Computed example of a mutant assay.
Amino acid sequence: MFPIGDDNSARRGTPVVTFALIAINVAVFLIELQRGDAFVTKWAFIPARFSNDPGADVSTLITAMFMHGGWMHLGGNMLYLWIFGDNVEDRFGSVRFLLFYLVAGLAATFAQFAVNPESAIPNVGASGAIAGVLGAYLLMFPKARVNVLLGRQVVAMPAFIVLGLWVALQLVSGVGSIADTAQTEQGGVAYMAHVGGFIAGLFLAVAMGGLRKSNDIA
């Protein structure tokens, strides 16, 4: 079940922050390709390095959010941001949405850090912040129609089903990934960052006044 779009008929303005975030992520990834592993090592969030000297490595809490491990990683994240970010930004307003996005991303990073603070694996990606966007979208627009690709058909489904299944996958995968990461120290999907970002998105949607009903998508 692959989301490809949603109903934007109730959107009031242009989601400039969403577009800017997508552009920055793409630009940073192109720089990664040009500069190679040294660039990734310098600007990725590495839990063990942060544990040893948090002050010296604090900037990577932000820079890692705009880096990706490959074209599929980038493409998947930007697709989800494109589909769901514009509506959340429309509800919050651009400035609050940017703050929301960064805080959700930080919460996601620390959720993954809490699982294995001594890991030497570089953590990169916007997945945690975008998981926060999904959490907020679920609370704000639970009945919004999301177009998903099922085989060769496009089917419109309620957001609470699409995102509910996504959450279930993260929780099931995350339970196994804790032990796997601790035992093998190999790279992979940071499921706990997804879970942490999603929970942060739920909390922030309420705390930042995102549940006003005046602009719901039908």
Score class of each variant (00 low, 15 high):
L33N: 12
G209M: 10
L79K: 10
L149H: 06
A27G: 08
L33M: 14
L30P: 00
L149E: 13
L81K: 06
V167G: 01
G201I: 02
N147E: 10
G13T: 11
S94V: 07
M140D: 03
L102S: 01
A182L: 15
K213Q: 08
G70W: 05
V167W: 06
M157W: 00
L163M: 13
G132H: 01
G197E: 04
S94A: 14
W166R: 07
L163W: 11
R49A: 14
A156K: 12
S214H: 10
I46A: 11
G69K: 09
G188V: 04
D6N: 14
Y80W: 10
A218D: 13
A111W: 03
F2A: 01
L30V: 14
V154G: 00
F29S: 07
F110Y: 06
M208C: 00
A179I: 10
G135K: 04
I31R: 09
W166I: 06
D6A: 15
P117R: 04
A107D: 00
L61D: 05
L138H: 03
W71F: 13
V175E: 13
Q183N: 11
T18D: 05
H68W: 11
K143D: 14
V17P: 04
I22R: 01
A136Y: 04
M192D: 07
P47M: 06
I24W: 05
T41E: 13
A38C: 08
S51D: 06
F141H: 10
L139Q: 09
R11V: 11
L169Q: 14
G128W: 02
A200T: 07
A193N: 14
I130K: 03
L33T: 04
A64M: 07
V115Y: 02
K143G: 05
Y137G: 03
S51C: 09
V115N: 02
G75V: 06
G187F: 03
V189K: 07
G188Q: 10
G125D: 09
F39R: 02
S127M: 06
G70H: 09
V206T: 08
A104D: 02
V16Y: 15
G174A: 08
A159P: 01
G188P: 07
A38D: 13
A10M: 08
L150S: 13
S9D: 11
P54F: 01
W71L: 14
G125N: 10
A23F: 09
I24Y: 05
V124S: 00
S94K: 14
N77A: 07
V172N: 08
F110N: 04
W166M: 12
A179P: 03
H68S: 11
G128L: 00
V124T: 07
V175K: 15
Y80S: 08
L163P: 02
G174I: 10
D53W: 02
I83W: 09
I24G: 03
E185G: 09
A114K: 09
V16H: 13
A131L: 02
P3L: 15
A200K: 09
N123D: 14
A193V: 09
P122I: 15
V155H: 11
A159L: 01
A107W: 00
D7S: 12
I178S: 06
A111V: 08
E89S: 07
G196L: 05
Q186E: 14
W82G: 05
V16M: 12
M157K: 12
F198V: 08
I22N: 05
K143A: 15
H68F: 15
